[in-house]
């Protein structure tokens, strides 16, 4: 049997995770194709939970597909759409179906998504959700009632190393670790010197850090993210590299940049692994890994 994500985390090897975005609708063909393509190349596959507050097929549905196809799912769970009862119930379901990894997120706000008049729940936050998991593992629900059969999860969270100001984010990062986060997948990072500084700080904590790598597909995308995505900072030299790429070659340049960053992170053991986000371009994830010199990663 393949190694579980938790075993991989504790094995000391350089961890690779990636993510799957579920479809808007019931056509699962593309998602299944991505699962087939990636499941043997990574240590865990996240499934996003109505990413950017856009209503989609649920993350737990995607995780079940990954399980059925022999992969190792990481269930992304936001606090945006469910109250504490619904969150706990879903954790019970996930556990009974062999899903063992949960990434706890607050969730994007409703107004940025495609159901602008919907009610945002946010009854719990990411720190409280982590603690909920640890409490359910002790055999009790949030109401203090005994569970007939507890859960056990490898629980993780996120951090934004490029946030400004950074200290409030670091305070929350530490609260997440105190709440029991075992792994952290970071927001996209592009400046390795900045990230090294973050890791000097983060190394002090008993948690595995996977650097977020978001594939750049064009200079325009990089500039757009700098303008509009909180906590993402693409340095000018990378934008210039993308701009200098011949027509039609920007994607390949982006793959090269991502591969180069992963190789550097791995070579110098800067962090414990990477989390690859190729938003909408999942089919090139194997090319990114090849560009990083990583082939046949998973045993």
């Amino acid at each position: 049997m393949a190694q579980s994500f938790k075993e991989a985390l504790n094995s000391g090897k350089f961890i690779i995770t990636s993510e799957i975005g579920p479809p808007k609708g019931t056509n699962l063909e593309k998602m299944r194709h991505h699962i087939d393509l990636l499941r043997d190349k990574v240590d865990g596959l996240n499934v996003t939970d109505h990413q950017s507050s856009v209503m989609r097929f649920p993350s737990i549905g995607g995780c079940l597909e990954i399980k059925e196809h022999g992969g190792e799912p990481i269930l992304q769970m936001t606090c945006r759409d469910r109250n504490q009862m619904a969150l706990q119930a879903e954790l019970l379901l996930a556990y009974t179906r062999g899903i063992r990894n949960v990434l706890c997120l607050t969730g994007d706000s409703i107004p940025i998504g495609d159901h602008k008049e919907a009610k945002g729940v946010f009854e719990l936050d990411s720190v409280q959700l982590l603690r909920t998991i640890r409490q359910m593992e002790s055999g009790k629900d949030l109401g203090g009632n005994a569970l007939d059969g507890a859960v056990e999860f490898c629980a993780g969270a996120i951090v934004t190393p490029e946030a400004n100001p950074i200290e409030p984010q670091l305070i929350k990062f530490e609260k997440k670790i105190e709440a029991g986060a075992e792994f952290i997948q970071t927001q996209a990072i592009y400046d390795l010197d900045n990230f090294r500084k973050f890791m000097e700080y983060a190394r002090k904590f008993p948690v595995k850090i996977l650097a977020g790598i978001v594939l750049l597909v064009s200079a325009r995308m990089a500039k757009y993210m700098n303008e509009n995505v909180p906590g993402i900072f693409v340095p000018q030299n990378l934008i210039a590299e993308l701009e200098a790429a011949p027509k039609g070659e920007a994607l390949n340049k982006g793959i090269e940049i991502a591969g180069r960053m992963i190789a550097a992170l791995k070579k110098d053991s800067i962090c414990d692994g990477v989390h690859l986000m190729a938003i909408g371009r999942e089919e090139v994830v194997p090319d990114i890994l090849a560009a990083a010199g990583i082939n046949g990663h998973k045993p």
């Binding site: 945006r80 607050t106 969730g107 994007d108 706000s109 107004p111 940025i112 945002g120 946010f122 936050d125 990411s126 720190v127 409280q128 996120i158 951090v159 934004t160 946030a163 400004n164 100001p165 409030p168 984010q169 305070i171 929350k172 609260k175 927001q187 909180p230 906590g231």
Partner: peptide, 20 residues
């Protein structure tokens, strides 16, 4: 806070402003 969070900021904040 747009999300009514109790344990610190979400990742959507940027330069002291709200993601919405």
């Amino acid at each position: 806070c747009h999300k009514g969070l109790l344990n610190g900021p979400c990742g959507g904040t940027n330069n002291g402003k709200c993601e919405i």
